[in-house]
Design a protein around this nucleic acid. Structure first.
Length: 788
DNA sequence: CAGTGAGCGAGCTTCCGCTTGACTT
């Protein structure tokens, strides 16, 4: 039995390190944190110095038992969790839970998984840094207090099951405020002048632009009129050398952004694929905030670049991390072996690997050398000059493999090559175009651009970016959605062949793809929290508490004092809000019903946003739900009135009425007792009887095909066809059928055997029967008494 | 599973960060 037990956080890391250390060491993983605050409200004894009650997480009991056994058999335990706040706390919890002794416990750290780094770490052990652990406890406790005191306020004042937290609430706020910016944006316009020239006797087009923009069509026209009949002489040529530098290697955040821009992956997808590449040993750890590369990596990249591209392309260097709150426990994300230009199991993994490979290699490549040429072309009669810009690449450097993407798509690259031109030369005019250009609102966030913003604010960590984005969508605060856009006219004036023509053209405005939109509930919760808990919702709140955590980590402040300082005023606000705040339902008067003269209001009801004709006392008041994409803040009286036209009678089929309406799951058609969803490409207000019948027939057919088999022994038991193939349904419980089973020949006994083997029905919502609800209720009642 | 638009009584919901599987109607 090896004498040394090393504990790291990740099993993949454990495997690698074990190879480096040899037979005297056994390396195991803790799978992250093994202990956390207990579940309920009593996990923190607020009255007693915020004493935390930690329990071993249920899914970690097996790991802990195994580690305990190994500890007994070892002479020395090496705690090798990450060198950051969370990692230090993991080591401390291990120390406590495993009952370790100081004399045979060593704490070691390394920032990169390389043999020299591990060996060096083993030679330089230290003790657990309790100050750093305390900073983590403060972080953990503050987050729990904020989350578990704010959420119940929302349950009471807004809606049950909602949630609030230091990270998620601010993430939602960003999206809500951006949406308001977009909706309040007043589009202004200018006229932009572009021109096309040719050199005498040549056909290559030289593009030029006037740096000045005109406010009105009249001004644009008068310029064009002056241009007509002007000559176009080059009055200045400026040649400037310039350089471009490669971007730093990937962190979690930049990987998510780039994979979103270049490959179109949502952040969760990127992380899943990266995890697979990591587990297969192709890349280094994918949750990191550091752009640092190990010496091994830098020399590996150098060798590969020299071999593949030549010595002149190599430029070894390291980058420094700029993001606030970075803890730099790991390396940047990079390939483990630079000589592997490709890796991965499937097309998606391969594309992500290639992106990581290119970015990492490029970061160690030479700068690109460019030459930028700016040519002034005088418009003789207007006394203004147009500028033509050209860029040539003298030496491509890192651009040979990689160029970072941009969030702003219409940031046009006019880095074209110019023909040889000389000062004083007169050019031939092809055309001059004046175009009306409208200003654009700030862009809505994508998942990845939200991550970028959160990172800039120092909010959230590499391991939580993807889960945070999923949480705010799951809670119904935010919706990832597309918008079709609407047509808008714009004016153009074209000068060509000495004639001037004005023309009205059309462009599509406001189309969006996979952008984050706030829902009404997201907006309402943000407004409510901003009103009552201004400091928590402040974009600088995390940065401010992080500063205090740092003081705790440096031993300058006790964590209890720090938490006390935060909690006292916070808790007073919570109590005050509970006692005095009005119930929030985002009520807004939209207008009056032209038919009855009654008021039409919008608000959030039990089942979501709705519009209502008549007030609460009105006996004939009517309700209608908002449709997907509509919000209480922006709905107009016309749109609201439209909603009351449902349910709508379409016609009849087989002597039954066919109606269309919008339900909880969107627009549907009802035929007798049959409900069928209306597909997205059809409009619930427009759909006709022919299309409706098609949908009904399809639904009836699907229903008929759904039942594969039933059993006379048990009429609640059926084999049904579902989205993922056949499955067994017994009442409300569902069971998977093992693959390769010939379903049609299954007998009652076979089915019962499958159910038996599957064990008790998987715990669905209905199965939330608590074995001892009374005991729990009593405990709660007791706690309430105590508080009073 | 769908048409509603409450809330006294009863119990539940919820946070952020570290890690992987298990599992999906």
């Amino acid at each position: 039995m090896p004498k040394n037990l090393v504990i790291v956080e990740s099993p993949a890391k454990a495997k690698t390190i074990e190879k480096f250390l040899g037979k005297d060491y056994i390396v195991k993983s803790s799978f992250g944190h093994i202990r956390d605050l207990d579940k309920g409200d009593e996990a923190i004894d607020v009255k007693n110095g915020f004493k935390p009650n930690y329990i071993v997480s249920p899914d970690k009991t097996k790991i802990v038992a195994e580690l305990k056994k190994l500890v007994k058999e070892s002479e020395m335990v090496w705690l090798a969790s990450d060198e950051d706040r969370e990692g230090e706390a993991i080591s401390w919890h291990l120390f406590e839970v495993l009952g370790l002794k100081e004399e045979n416990t060593k704490r070691i750290v390394f920032h990169e998984i390389t043999k020299p780094a591990i060996e060096k770490a083993i030679l330089n052990p230290r003790k657990i840094d309790k100050d750093l652990v305390d900073a983590q406890q403060a972080r953990r406790i503050l987050d729990r207090l904020v989350g578990f005191e704010l959420s119940p306020v929302l349950w009471r004042k807004v809606k049950p099951s909602l949630s609030a937290g230091r990270v998620q609430s601010v993430a939602v706020r960003l999206i809500v405020e951006r949406e308001r910016e977009v909706n309040n944006h007043n589009s202004t316009f200018e006229f932009r002048i572009t021109a096309e020239f040719t050199k005498k006797g040549e056909s290559k087009i030289i593009k030029a632009e006037l740096s000045e923009r005109f406010k009105t069509e009249k001004e644009a026209l008068s310029f064009i009129e002056l241009a007509n009949g002007s000559n176009f002489q080059i009055t200045n040529i400026e040649v400037k050398p310039s350089q471009r530098k490669a971007a730093a290697p990937f962190t979690t955040s930049t990987l998510q952004q780039e994979a979103s821009r270049k490959l179109g992956y949502p952040v969760a997808k990127t992380m899943l694929l990266a995890q697979k590449l990591y587990e297969a040993g192709h890349i280094t750890y994918m949750r990191t905030d550091s752009v640092n590369l190990s010496q091994t990596a830098i020399s590996g990249a150098e060798a590969e670049i020299k071999k593949a591209y030549g010595t002149q392309y190599s430029m070894p260097r390291n980058y420094t991390t700029k993001s606030p709150g970075a803890q730099e426990a790991h390396e940047a994300i990079r390939p483990t072996y630079f000589e592997n230009h490709t890796a991965g199991e499937d097309a998606q993994e391969i594309r992500l690997y290639e992106l990581i490979w290119k970015r990492s290699i490029a970061s160690q490549m030479a700068n690109a050398e460019l030459e930028r040429t700016i040519v002034d072309i005088n418009v003789s009669k207007a006394n203004k000059h147009l500028k033509a810009e050209g860029e040539i690449i003298k030496f491509d450097g890192f651009l040979k493999v990689y160029l970072e993407g941009k969030d702003d798509e219409d940031d046009e690259e006019n880095s074209t090559l110019l023909p040889h031109l000389s000062n004083g030369e007169v050019l031939d005019l092809g055309q001059i175009l004046a175009e009306q250009k409208f200003s654009r609102a700030a862009p809505r966030y994508t998942e990845a651009s939200l991550v970028k913003k959160l990172e800039e604010l120092g909010i959230g960590r590499p391991s939580t970016y993807a889960p945070t984005i999923s949480t705010i969508q799951k809670r119904g605060y935010v919706l990832k959605d597309n918008r079709e856009g609407t047509p808008r006219n714009f004016q153009t004036i074209l000068l060509k062949n000495n004639t001037i023509k004005a023309h009205t053209a059309t462009e599509n405005v406001g189309a969006e793809k996979s952008k984050l939109f706030p829902t009404d509930i997201g907006t309402l919760v943000t407004d409510f929290l901003s009103e009552h808990f201004k400091n928590i919702m402040d974009y600088g709140f995390t940065a401010a508490v992080e500063k205090e955590f740092d003081e705790v980590a440096q031993g300058l402040k006790s964590w209890v004092k720090m938490i006390e300082g935060f909690y006292k005023p916070f808790h007073i606000e919570v109590d005050k809000t509970m006692a005095t705040a009005e119930r929030a339902n985002a009520e807004r008067v939209i207008g009056t019903d032209p038919e009855t003269g009654k008021q039409i209001t919008g608000r959030i009801g039990r089942y979501g946003p709705l519009v209502q004709i008549g007030d609460a006392e009105d006996e004939n008041k009517k309700f209608a739900s908002l449709r997907a994409g509509q919000t209480l803040e922006t709905i107009t009286i016309e749109q609201a009135l439209e909603l009351f036209k449902l349910p709508r009678l379409i016609g009849s089929y087989k002597e039954e009425k066919v109606t269309a309406a919008i339900g909880r799951f969107g627009p549907y058609i009802k035929f007798g007792s049959v409900f069928a969803s209306i597909p997205k490409d059809k409009d619930v207000f427009e759909i006709g009887i022919v299309e409706a019948i098609e949908i009904i027939d399809a639904k009836l057919q699907a229903e008929a095909e759904k039942l594969i088999k039933s059993f006379k022994e048990d009429d609640t038991l059926e084999i049904l066809k579902g989205r993922w193939g056949p499955y067994i349904a017994q009442g409300k419980a569902f069971y998977k059928i093992p693959k390769e089973t010939e379903v049609s020949t299954l007998t009652y006994a076979d089915v019962m055997a499958i159910i038996e083997k599957a064990g008790p029905a998987p715990a669905r919502k209905a199965a939330a029967k608590n074995p001892a609800p009374k005991a729990k209720a009593k405990a709660k009642a007791k706690a309430k008494v105590k508080k009073k």
